[in-house]
Design a protein around this nucleic acid. Sequence first.
DNA 1: AATGATAACAACCGCCTGTGT
DNA 2: TACACAGGCGGTTGTTATCAT
Length: 220
Amino acid sequence: MQTMMAWGMPEQQGWRKGPWTPEEDKLLSDYVSLHGEGRWSSVARSAGLNRSGKSCRLRWVNYLRPGLKRGQLTPQEEGIIIELHALWGNKWSTIARYLPGRTDNEIKNYWRTHFKKKEKSSRKHEQRKQQIRQREEQQGEQPVLEHHDHMIRSVLFHAETGNTEKMTAEAQEIRQQMVFSTHPTNSENHCFPVVYQDVAPWSDTVADDVLWGGLWDLDD
DNA sequence: AATGATAACAACCGCCTGTGT
DNA sequence: TACACAGGCGGTTGTTATCAT
């Protein structure tokens, strides 16, 4: 096991590892602000950092990059993460694109700390979903959960491809309820939806305890 | 006040993919 | 077409902070 002490010491051979010092941060920030992102291997050398290109990139992306939000995720952001994780699974970088200012690492860590401990309850969550689906089928309705997933997929897909005019009326309505914003790292042509406010007004159609309960109810 | 448990965060590792030659 | 390399991504681990007992 590596220790802090070992990390803190410069490597005899190869790159330095471990926590970044303020001096290293400044070197990296100054260099990137002058020369831009990319060519991380040469950044490492040119900036006078004894760090690997990978390490420099990671430090920049997760910590030094302008526009990063610090602090706790808002309930709205939590909602987005839950939604998008349900759609895409552990595609952290993809999910992060919809949360400007948040990094994939941050979201990954968040998910891990908040959901690993709740894995036990997820089975119950699945059972509850099953119950609702059965109830919906008995009532002859379109399954809310599937419909919900489908609509969000549709909105996000069309938003990303820029074909918002091809959305169905219902999708358009949902889109209206989403707050759109341009991701800082995104190219100018794409508009990423960000569900900041009232994360899912349409989620009223899904029982709260389905959306949140199975995942968050620790008492289970 | 001491100690253990847990959460939050930072960073590394290995694999995969895209790109240039 | 094949190879090498850089960058990106997801998984994992380690450290620190905070809370409960």
